[in-house]
Write a protein that binds this DNA or RNA. Structure first.
Lengths: 239, 239
DNA sequence: CAGTATCCGATGCGATACTG
DNA sequence: CAGTATCGCATCGGATACTG
């Protein structure tokens, strides 16, 4: 832990807790609903276990996180305290600010399909699925071999992500560069626009294509406000 | 600069810019209106010049800050770009969150009168002054000798801060522990309550005492919203 | 699986000294 | 005054190995 700033200013005190490397991203994962160590780690794959462990302890000490031993099996459940949950709007605001003002391109390195798919899976609106299961195949031509193909098997009861063909008939098929998909995901590129520009290709029965925006979620930062969210969806569905 | 997180998530990209040690506090100073190097540094006195210089360059590179050489004399003027200014509500929200949820006590170390007075001077509402000049003497009994006594000479045209008696007749006199004063400043302790509890003492003509809350500002985090602000003022004036 | 302990190298930061 | 250059130590964090 860094030395204290030695200031009474609340911003300084907040910074002492949140500015440590990775900490904010761990909070983000918890806000997104991850509760288990490995689940959290899938959201921050470049972070070592030991550091994640340390950060979780620090967050617990700062009273932003509580843990409870699992009733069955080993391990704990990590959850945000009210103080931690109160950071939700702040993290969203930060993400939105970042999307709007930091014009950095997404690099090839960053557009990790594993992370993207993991995020995407978590944000599905399973209740809106047009079929049960709905199976979507994703192809990222530019990704490293092991991360090129993904099967998403979405059921109302939950969704699974596979690296190899699970054998279900495929309903929809995406084909895109990981970067383009990531831009759509974070709301910098609208799906309709991406499709028109052929940066993202989507194949399947017309009605399934049309209904997709209803149940595939986007990043929390993709929607500045609910109205814009709805407008964006209409636009996509119409395209 | 730390290594990149390697994530496309906007939060990660924002963190890369803002999470460096001291950076957020430098942004805070710029948001508060400081534009000159030394002015900024007075708000972060424990930060070395070299590091402040480096951080300012980084912020400039991230397009949050612009500089302009001074027409006369040496040095530059530092200013936030629109992107930087857009962080304003975020910093305030962070400070408010911190005040509300991080219940850390202000330590004696942190309650630096120099910082407190510097903040206070900057937040005066000079147009609301009852007299011109209005001279306030502050005594912090618990502070180190050199920081025990302060004279604030506030004029509509600007305010000065002195460590030694400037010779003006004193209108109001504060006497408090620096910690108590800091708690009032950040809005964790209401001035009226502090006065009643004798943690802060204020002496002077009745009408000047009463008018003080009108022109002495509090930290940006002391007011969750304008309504609360007005209510707080009324409460103080009545007490 | 769900973490923890240890080690070691990189680097971030603070101190000091210096310049126009 | 308004910064910049340099240096050396501390510490942070990543890799690896380990445990119940």
């Amino acid at each position: 832990m860094q030395e204290s700033y030695g200031q009474f200013c609340p911003v300084a005190q907040a910074a002492e807790v949140l500015n440590e490397r990775w900490t904010l991203l761990v909070v983000r994962e918890l806000l997104m609903g991850s509760t288990r160590f490995n689940e959290i780690q899938r959201g921050v794959p470049r972070m070592s276990s030991s550091l994640l462990s340390k950060r979780l302890r620090e967050l617990e000490q700062a009273a932003l996180v509580t843990t409870e031993p699992l009733a069955v099996g080993r391990g704990k459940v990590y959850e945000l305290t009210p103080a931690g949950r109160a950071l939700g709007p702040l993290v969203v605001a930060l993400g939105t600010w970042s999307r709007d003002w930091l014009s950095r391109e997404i690099s090839a390195e960053e557009a990790d399909p594993a992370l993207l798919m993991w995020d995407l899976r978590r944000s599905l609106r399973l209740q809106q699925l047009p079929k049960d299961p709905t199976v979507v195949f994703f192809r990222f031509r530019d990704a490293e071999p092991k991360k090129r193909a993904w099967w998403l098997v979405a059921r109302r009861s939950g969704a699974e992500l596979c690296f190899s063909d699970p054998g279900f008939p495929i309903d929809l098929e995406f084909d895109a560069e990981a970067r383009a998909m990531a831009e759509v995901w974070i709301g910098r590129l609208e799906l309709g626009a991406a499709l028109r520009a052929r940066r993202v290709k989507l194949a399947g029965p017309d009605e399934l294509v049309r209904s997709l925006p209803k149940w595939i979620g986007l990043s929390a930062f993709a929607y500045p406000d609910p109205a814009a969210e709805m407008a964006a969806r209409e636009g996509v569905a119409g395209g």
